[in-house]
Amino acid sequence: KAKLLVLLYAFVATDADTICIGYHANNSTDTVDTILEKNVAVTHSVNLLEDSHNGKLCKLKGIAPLQLGKCNITGWLLGNPECDSLLPARSWSYIVETPNSENGACYPGDLIDYEELREQLSSVSSLERFEIFPKESSWPNHTFNGVTVSCSHRGKSSFYRNLLWLTKKGDSYPKLTNSYVNNKGKEVLVLWGVHHPSSSDEQQSLYSNGNAYVSVASSNYNRRFTPEIAARPKVRDQHGRMNYYWTLLEPGDTIIFEATGNLIAPWYAFALSRGFESGIITSNASMHECNTKCQTPQGAINSNLPFQNIHPVTIGECPKYVRSTKLRMVTGLRNIPSIQYRGLFGAIAGFIEGGWTGMIDGWYGYHHQNEQGSGYAADQKSTQNAINGITNKVNSVIEKMNTQFTAVGKEFNNLEKRMENLNKKVDDGFLDIWTYNAELLVLLENERTLDFHDLNVKNLYEKVKSQLKNNAKEIGNGCFEFYHKCDNECMESVRNGTYDYPKYSEESKLNR
């Protein structure tokens, strides 16, 4: 008799109507990190870190770059004969040098303040090359056809396309004075040089004057150069050297050249137009028929994500570079809930034993079982409120962090190594801060989002509990077992918050 009662009780308990509160689960393989956990499985997430590029040089917003090819900045601007293909260059979106560009200054020497000139050019998007001192009329008392084997072109001695090597005419090199007034309405880049012979005999042979000088002056520039005559090792078949100089001439300003020898005179100059998204990159990537809004030396990035880990040097509207390998923000729920887990921000989770793959029309909802059958029903209101809140948060985070910009490298010469090392340390410090901030932001927001979901499920549970009161009992896994019969209409009233407690209280009292 006792065995019969136990079996009867078990049958009745199993047959009781139930309603459970749960949440969506799926077959997603997404994982995120939080402050407290690593690799948390979630139903949905968004990636904030771009880690792919196309490996190509592309047009930037429809404008092609200027590819210097086998030449570098120095060779292009001075007019190395091997860089003749660059003479027609007028406009570009950015400038590309190759790491091993070999054609710079063909006659050995240095372009002074080269690093600063590169910085200036990094904001130039177009130029006009014009004859600042016409070759045939500007130097009537001097020979202007100086050439050298060091600047050979097609097997013949030649010289820079933008400079003139002035030497004596006959047996004399009379003092020369020439000036140019900038009437271009924009900055003009003027380049010139000073020749330093290897011996007094060479000085006399070329310029006749043993104590020659070169003077260059404008409103913002004033220097006097004296040739340094000295024996030097042979470089590119030359014992002599040429140093090259430049200045930016403001609109309306005048530049005056005065010399008694050794002047490498300007022939062509450049009127410059600035462009905020221009820059110089060093890259071996090849040019393709493609378009982008962000270019790196590795390749083009076409992404609206706020961060990238491809390269710190970028041109155009680019994500911020960070050292992170993963920045994924959760938008959905835990896919593998932890039992009795309390989140960092106070939300209680884990009283549900598992997510439901059968509930596909919402994030949170119900599963019921009664004599009429069983089924899932999503709670659309709480789901939609959660979707709206999380979507707004993700968009806000992306908008705040998605300050796209150009980031170019800084140039230092060989004598500025300590400054370069200090600059690298400062840049590394800023990069570490950006990386830390980005990672911390994602970790915190992921923790908040998961706790937010847990709290929403808990609130749904409490909503049902407050309606049923003692007409049902909690069975410990997020479910309630009714003390009365609850048909589909009754189940719907529980879900929509209109459950009639008094209607079922007498039946429940008897069954309790």
Rank of each mutant, 00 (worst) to 15 (best):
R90G: 07
P134E: 14
Y213C: 12
D15I: 07
I21E: 04
L87C: 00
K1C: 12
I73V: 15
K156N: 02
Q238W: 01
N211R: 08
A271V: 15
Y245V: 01
S52N: 11
S150P: 01
T167A: 02
T18S: 13
E116A: 08
G210P: 15
S85H: 13
A217F: 12
K234N: 09
N209W: 03
G170N: 15
N262T: 01
L68I: 13
C151P: 06
S93N: 02
W246E: 01
S218F: 06
K184V: 14
F130I: 14
N243Y: 14
T282L: 15
L66P: 06
E258Y: 02
N26P: 03
Y244N: 03
K38G: 15
Q67I: 13
Y268A: 03
G55H: 09
N141R: 06
S123L: 08
K61N: 15
G261N: 01
D51R: 01
L248Q: 05
S278C: 01
S273P: 00
A105R: 00
L77A: 08
G275M: 04
V216D: 08
N211I: 11
L86R: 08
A2S: 13
W267H: 15
Y245Q: 05
I264S: 01
L127N: 00
G279Y: 10
D113K: 02
K169M: 13
N141E: 10
G22D: 06
R154E: 13
N220W: 13
V188D: 03
V32F: 02
F276R: 14
R236S: 12
R232A: 09
G104N: 06
S273K: 10
T148N: 05
W267A: 10
A89S: 12
V6M: 14
C20A: 05
Y23W: 13
L164D: 04
L66V: 13
G279N: 13
L111C: 03
V235Y: 05
T226I: 15
N243L: 11
E116P: 07
G22K: 02
P99L: 12
L121I: 15
N162I: 01
K38M: 10
F225L: 11
R241T: 09
P266C: 04
A269D: 01
W139Y: 12
Y160G: 01
L5P: 03
P227H: 07
C20G: 00
F144T: 07
L117W: 07
Q67D: 14
I19F: 04
V149R: 02
T143V: 00
A64R: 12
L248R: 09
N162H: 13
A16N: 10
E228K: 02
P81A: 06
Y173G: 02
T31Y: 01
C58G: 06
S219M: 15
V12N: 05
G55L: 01
S45D: 06
N54T: 12
V147E: 06
V194G: 06
P251F: 07
L5S: 13
A2Y: 14
L111G: 00
W192R: 01
A2M: 14
D253Y: 01
W267R: 10
K70S: 12
T260Q: 13
G62L: 02
L111H: 08
